[in-house]
Design a protein around this nucleic acid. Structure first.
Length: 367
DNA sequence: AACTCGGGGAC
DNA sequence: GTCCCAGAGTT
């Protein structure tokens, strides 16, 4: 009997919990439901897929096994553990929050929604996840998975990212967690997310295996493939970026540390920048490096070319070997500049692009 | 409400 | 190539 009306919470909660008991994946952060473990995992999982997070999470928990270890670390340690995972405001906020928890909450992660939301990097979703998964509280979560699941179950035909629909979805998520049996709000929230990850997927949802297909309004209407409604997105701009690989006679590399705000904040990298329209790569290298660290260089040979997509633009990055011809490096448009021997590179946090250039350099040196 | 902020898995 | 992921903060 296909659904003809929006499902009642009771039609969803028990089938979902029963399904979840056997379908639930064994993920590293599910073996430890301590507030610290949940917090770290949830922040790492923000806009980041499970498979990407797993190795970072395991390494992080070895390096910073509890909140005291994180609070006692240096920001550089924290950024290095995060390097390559993206959205680098996250580790900075995690670190700041750890210090605040020590100062305000005697080192214990607070179990109150208001206090969690007051911490940097913890928004409505992450607060709900910590409160329900670690503390067993009846608080809802709404992430990308739950958003999609709810848009299908209730056949919400409007743009799901508007404020109106988002509010509606939070209300639905609240109703569902309120209908969970005593002591099961965390399981219910996890089951909703797990359903979105395993069954109610963005493309080709596995409705035949879905425990709540009978209650799903979009499925009954045959429109599950069109929920949630997607709106066309503009193509992001493209930039050409140049970077200089500058080595002195000892083999040391000239590296910069990025400013503490903005893109890739606080991470290390090669000097360089975005090419102007019509500018040659050689001119661009000389100009950007002069402005960034006040030295004159002469590009000699192209080392490698890398294509990379950021959130709002794409780049093609050309890394050139350069001769340092004049000037003492100084941090004009960066936080720091330093000559670094190859052995010391593992001690610095690099974004993915710079890590790839350094890998190419290492490969060329050993060839 | 619009914009910023990475990187990669899956198709 | 495209879509989108256990989102949060700023303007």
């Amino acid at each position: 009997m296909p659904a003809t009306a929006p499902p009642a919470s009771d039609q969803i909660v028990l089938p979902l919990l029963t399904w979840h008991q056997t379908a639930r994946r064994d993920l590293p952060w599910r073996r430890d439901r301590s507030p610290y473990a949940v917090w770290i995992a949830e922040v790492m999982l923000q806009q980041t897929q499970t498979a990407t997070v797993i190795p970072y999470y395991e390494q992080w928990m070895r390096r910073f096994p509890d909140l005291a270890a994180l609070a006692a670390a240096s920001l550089d340690d924290v950024l290095r553990a995060w390097a390559g995972l993206g959205y680098y405001a996250r580790p900075r906020q995690l670190y700041r929050a750890a210090q605040l928890i020590v100062a305000r909450h005697a080192g214990q992660i607070p179990a109150a929604r208001r206090e969690l939301l007051a911490l940097p990097g913890i928004g409505r979703y992450t607060a709900g996840a910590i409160l329900s998964l670690a503390f067993g509280q009846r608080e809802p979560v709404l992430d990308g998975n739950v958003r999609r699941v709810l848009c299908r179950l209730y056949d919400i035909a409007a743009d799901p990212n508007t404020a109106t629909v988002t509010k509606q979805l939070w209300t639905l998520a609240t109703e569902l967690v309120n209908a969970a049996p005593e002591g099961r709000p965390g399981d219910l929230n996890e089951a909703l997310m797990e359903l979105g990850a395993l069954i109610c997927t963005p493309r080709q949802p596995r409705c035949a295996a879905c425990p709540v297909a009978a209650a799903c309004l979009a499925h009954a209407r045959g429109v599950e493939a069109d929920r949630p409604l997607i709106q066309p997105t503009a193509r992001p701009p493209h930039h050409t970026v140049v970077a200089g690989v500058i080595q002195d006679e000892t083999g040391a590399l000239l590296l910069i540390r990025r400013l503490p705000t903005g893109l890739l904040a606080g991470l290390w990298g090669l000097p360089g920048g975005v090419l102007l329209v019509g500018e040659t790569m050689e001119d661009g290298i000389r100009r950007t490096i002069r402005g960034q660290i006040g030295v004159e260089v002469a590009p000699t040979a192209l080392l490698t070319r890398i294509k990379h997509a950021y959130t709002h633009f794409r780049i093609t990055l050309f890394a050139w070997r350069c001769q340092h011809t004049a000037g003492v490096p100084q941090p004009l448009q960066c936080a720091e500049v330093r000559w670094v021997l190859p052995d010391a590179l593992p001690g610095l946090a690099f974004p993915a692009t710079d890590a790839r250039i350094l890998q190419a350099l290492k490969a060329a040196a050993s060839a």
